[in-house]
Design a protein around this nucleic acid. Structure first.
Lengths: 336, 336
DNA sequence: TCAGTTTGTTTAAACGATTAAGCATATCTT
DNA sequence: AAGATATGCTTAATCGTTTAAACAAACTGA
């Protein structure tokens, strides 16, 4: 591999020291009083040799890499993929590059990702934290590394975060269902102590209670992350047999999709037999028959905001930023 | 930010030079004949101080970063997201990290991504090349940088690649449609000189010809990448009006999805009025009514193979590897 | 006993950039 | 004319590793 052109090559060609070259190429020629003629000769040489700065060397010296570490649950999940794309686009505007890792909602995988990214000296993290990551996030905070949590956060930690107002989202969705005449509404969520899930559940419960629904009719199925398929099948099977359930509210994108498979499997008619509200939006929702009503997160805003906040923090100009964004309920055909 | 522990810190603590520490922590203690006692003391100190090597410094010195640059058309597209996930998982096994960029099928965006990644000294590239990227790929080859193209390639360049046998895929799909009694089969493809698209078209055309279909009934709609929605709507609108078209074969995932929207819009009944075959698989295909028959790419194999080939090339042990994989036709309800 | 080997360690250069500090000249100022 | 100031450039340290080469001490064998 032909070795790359370095500052030294330019310096040699022009007949000056590398210092001058560095100054010029970093636009410090005024400040550092570099002679006009030398400036142009350096510029020309750089162009002729097609010089490209070695970011690695620069990073080592400067102590910063212009790199953001992004940890999501699973980049193959359309919700996170879309988010990642937004973050990538936003970051590149500021000359930052993004390294993405998938944690699979697994704390130890997440930890090894954090470690890998730390060794690579990322300047900051955007993390969708998995259950049990409190400690590792805390340790990042202690190291005073810029971190911003997204989608979820840990209430006991004073981190920056950008999230959906999950409570309000499910509260409104539930209220909407009740408004359409549903009474026996069930929620399907992940079994997880994470705040986003807890808040979604709380939104549902409190909306039900506020409308005076009998406490016995408040029912949340908390599904294990690794057994979604099986448990969903069971739930929908039972639901088909004893028909008093009016409506289902799904707590995430992946649960919605899995739920739709099970609904179709069991030939449950939507919305005649059951009203359904999904989470996050997905092309698959569009082709379900009828198209699914769902809670939409402001992905664009979430991604951009998280990058903005993180970069502010990296540059040291940031103060605490705990952002809660508002959902939108996209009404379509799946509620009676 | 508390500064990180370096080799020097360990060396000081143990009272030896950094060289010894480096040897030990890289497992060269036998080869470099480091004393047993010193070895254990270094190990202990490293553990106590929670030493983590600085990959940036190491990269600078070694000239390799253990980083792979991945350029896809759009990471938000489920096909590429899934592929990216597989590549990420495979790479991490070998202690490589992946930096992903989205080119939007745009050569100049792709070029600036390549440049960014080059400055960051990635050890190799996995690229889904966009139209007009021939030159930039060629220049990577000239620099003897490990590159592997995926999904498509440039026949005139001697690159490594891992792709689907696109010709065979559409040939079989078309033959399948003809076998089900379709005669007037149309294909919807991107307007693109890229080989994958050309091969998909050729597969369709030759299958039609081989079965003796009238040349006038061989019809390919070549759609502009940036006007998919509008053009698709027009095609399906016309198709609804003059009903002699039997079947549609879509050439990509995104086209399939866009097509399904248009088909629903125009209330075309599948498969009664029209048989449909999609490309690549997508959750949305499952919920279309009826579920879509489609050409499935061996994503897992594609991703793993590309990483394997790339790493071999990086390590210098690789020879030319031009891999063509076989599709699978997933038969479901969308063909009469 | 002494050259030769083995064992264990240090030294120092290198990777490619950044940047504080120093060193000449030239130009003012009075 | 002498000191001050401006101008233009170089020197060299530094970031944290890796690694060839040198070095020192202990051991070997005849």
């Amino acid at each position: 591999m032909a070795k790359k052109v370095s500052l030294k090559d330019i310096a040699n060609k022009v007949g000056v020291s590398t210092a001058l070259v560095s100054y010029v190429l970093n636009g410090l020629e005024k400040e550092k009083r570099v002679g006009q003629e030398v400036v142009t000769r350096i510029r020309e040489a750089a162009r002729d040799l097609n010089y490209q700065p070695n970011q690695i060397a620069r990073s080592l010296r400067k102590g910063s890499t212009n790199t953001i570490g992004l940890i999501v649950a699973d980049i193959a999940n359309p919700f996170f993929a879309h988010l990642a794309r937004i973050i990538e686009d936003e970051a590149i505007k500021y000359n930052y590059v993004v390294i993405i890792g998938s944690s699979d909602e697994n704390a130890s995988k997440s930890e090894s990702l954090v470690e890998t990214l730390l060794n690579r000296q990322v300047d900051g993290f955007i993390i969708v934290p998995a259950e049990g990551c409190n400690r590792q996030v805390e340790s990042l905070l202690q190291k005073e590394l810029p971190v911003i949590l997204i989608d979820r956060y840990f209430p006991e930690l004073a981190t920056n975060f950008v999230i959906l107002d999950n409570y309000q989202a499910t509260y409104e969705a539930t209220t909407y269902l009740i408004g359409r005449g549903c009474r026996k509404i069930e929620m399907i969520a992940y079994k997880s102590p994470l705040i986003h899930m807890q808040e979604r559940m709380r939104g549902y419960r409190e909306a039900m209670a506020a409308k005076g629904i009998d406490e016995n009719d408040i029912c949340i199925h908390e599904i294990d992350y690794h057994q979604v398929g099986a448990q969903m099948g069971k739930i929908m099977g039972e639901l088909k047999r004893n028909k008093d359930t009016d409506a289902i509210l799904f707590a995430t994108n992946a649960l919605s999709i899995a739920g739709l498979y099970a609904i179709r499997e069991n030939k449950i008619r939507i919305p005649e037999e059951l009203s359904v509200i999904g989470f996050d939006g997905n092309e698959a929702f569009d082709f379900f028959d009828p198209p699914l009503t769902f809670i939409q997160q402001p992905l664009e805003e979430m991604g951009k905001e998280s990058v903005r906040v993180l970069l502010e923090q990296i540059k040291g100009t940031g103060k605490a930023a705990q952002v809660k964004l508002k959902h939108e309920l996209i009404r379509r055909g799946s509620c009676r």
